[in-house]
Nucleic acid binder design. Structure first.
Lengths: 349, 349
DNA sequence: TTCGTGGTGGAGAACGTTACACACAGCCTT
DNA sequence: AAGGCTGTGTGTAACGTTCTCCACCACGAA
């Protein structure tokens, strides 16, 4: 725009420059880059030094046109959920030493936005996708998975189109119910996210969690005490659910929430209603995020080994990307109860 | 690998298909896609319907070879920092209606890893970069910014190589000190991240914050009571700093931390030492993250308007990407004190 | 009629990389 | 000595876009 003499940004070093500098063909350099078959040690040496001397880095866009982009996309709805951060750490750690780069799309909760983000990733020729509890329709995910290696974390719906990593949420719910029953509680309510929203996923984490809760309650002969409330997994969502639940005539003595952050909302509601925790109400979260461990919170929660889930997902994905496996697989993690100060024996029973 | 008849994934729709289907040239379709000059309404119409009918989506890798990729990269060290989530929200919202996609790289705290991630983004031909408080060396960032439009969030070092968005951290520190002094405190300590690590940034947020703290203390005639402790911005870092600080013979009556999460670590230390908050110790965080607002926490903190910072950064970046501005600019936000239950008047003074 | 002129559409050369096909050399079998 | 491998290196056609010309047309002015 009229600036005097825009300083010509010196052109990037390309594979051709490397080839010339090393005195070999472009094809040879490409082979070394991809460590493909048919390269002698001498050639390796020559090319590698040339690359180092010129500080050459391959351009992913050009690679993407024929081969791989060495990019893995991770879709998640929202960065605030600390559990996702654990998963991310696992993914990153697994891929740190590889030549793949992880790029994250934080699409928000809107299924359409998520779908748009997934398409963006496909359009950018990413080699593989990890979708964390996608809200997008099942059909959309299956279509994507047909063309790009994909791992879905969270949803229990099995398929041979993509790999899956799940937590045994039903077992997790059972652990919580057992713990609370052992403390003498009988009126145990569950606050979970609304189930499937007609997007064809039949076994979301929430659905499985709820099923696990119900069956555990039945196992203890408490089927008629089952109380399920739906709420968004946020502080506000938990607060609203808490206000409803705790002012009900059939007020539960213990509440379990499907996410720590929702449990804290319930905490706030209890506080507002003058109920003490754990004396008047036992409260259990889910995911054992850093939140739960805070000194001032001390929330009993269920640990999901997010780190391990992430690294497993990454490992499985790379196997697929590199064609070392051609059949779908599903990995399931066993949750573990972490007891803290928010649960206590039912008093005056 | 011996699988029977790998189902040929039906090839993607390309610009050539669209051109053929619409009965026009490839060049014309390209023009419509980029809404370039020299396209008649009729042509627009024809091409757009063809695109819709074939469900065509341009392939970013191919675009990247000649023109833009319509991708914006955001670098941050760690997803757990809730303040970054606010910034991200701002960025996403600003870009939601545009044709740009935001991809996030969470590189961790290691400067080398961060540099690697920045390079990855450049290699992927991203159109623009937003770097949130990068730990990478200044030289590296300047070199990147010379070739790719870049906005740096956090660091106050001015330059004409890239745009900047900062919070007036010195003012923020002043607000806190004023507040605490008004409550009668005189021994006010600061816990902040270690300053510049020889990576050539002279005015990181920590440095500016510390300077603001010092000058506010001087302004109140408390220069000799200045006490600065360095700690990582994490629960553990805060805890360690807290243990040192609170067992010192010159124990402060108030502590301000450069990040909420560190404040919570100090909280834990205080708790462990039998100190009550706010009766025995006033505590102030920074960033006013969701953590600070939790019912069980109620931490006085400084709000940084992360959302606005993010949307400003995005807007500034797009201006540069699209060549609508060719001079660097710097945006500064004014922080605001949010008083909660963790600060109180000095008792028995 | 002739000449410009502005507005549209198209041809075709990049862009940097991969992957296919082939050439060549050296060695082992017969 | 002929033939067949095997292991290495190279030439070159893609890949799907963008973007720089260039051609064409219609129209108005001289």
């Amino acid at each position: 725009m009229g600036g005097s003499a825009t300083p010509k940004q010196n052109k990037r070093v390309t594979i051709t420059d490397v080839a010339r500098h090393a005195g070999v063909s472009v094809a040879a350099v490409s082979k070394v880059l991809r460590n493909a078959y048919g390269v002698s040690p001498g050639m390796q040496e020559k090319v590698r030094t040339a690359i180092a001397e010129l500080d050459y880095r391959p351009q992913a866009a050009a690679r993407g046109m024929r081969g791989r982009t060495y990019t893995i996309g991770v879709l998640l709805d929202n960065v605030r959920n600390a559990f996702f951060a654990d998963i991310l750490d696992g993914i990153q750690e697994e891929l740190r030493t590889s030549e793949y780069t992880v790029l994250i799309g934080a699409a928000g909760f809107d299924p359409d936005e998520q779908a748009k983000t997934i398409r963006s990733m496909v359009d950018r020729q990413m080699d593989g996708l990890i979708l964390i509890a996608p809200g997008t329709s099942r059909a959309e995910v299956l279509a994507t998975a047909a063309a790009t290696p994909t791992v879905v974390i969270g949803h229990h719906d099995g398929t041979d189109a993509h790999d899956s990593v799940v937590d045994a949420d039903d077992t997790g719910a059972g652990l919580v119910v057992d713990h609370l029953v052992a403390l003498g509680h009988r009126d145990i309510a569950l606050v979970s996210a609304p189930g499937t929203k007609a997007n064809q996923w039949k076994r979301t984490p929430e659905v499985v969690l709820t099923a696990g809760y119900r069956s555990a309650m039945e196992r203890h002969g408490l089927a008629e005490r089952v109380q399920v409330h739906h709420a968004a997994y946020s502080d506000e969502g938990g607060f609203k659910a808490g206000m409803t639940l705790l002012t009900d005539e059939r007020r539960p003595t213990a509440v379990m929430a499907g996410a720590d952050v929702a449990a804290l909302g319930i905490y706030r509601a209890a506080h507002e209603l003058g109920l003490r925790i754990p004396e008047d109400l036992s409260l259990v979260g889910y995911n054992n995020t850093a939140l739960a461990a805070l000194a001032t919170v001390q929330l009993t929660s269920v640990d999901q080994a997010g780190h391990t889930m992430g690294s497993s997902a990454a490992r499985m994905l790379i196997e697929r990307v590199e064609g070392r496996r051609d059949r779908a697989m599903q990995t399931s993690m066993t949750p573990r109860l972490v007891v803290r100060g928010s649960t206590a024996a039912l008093s005056g029973s």
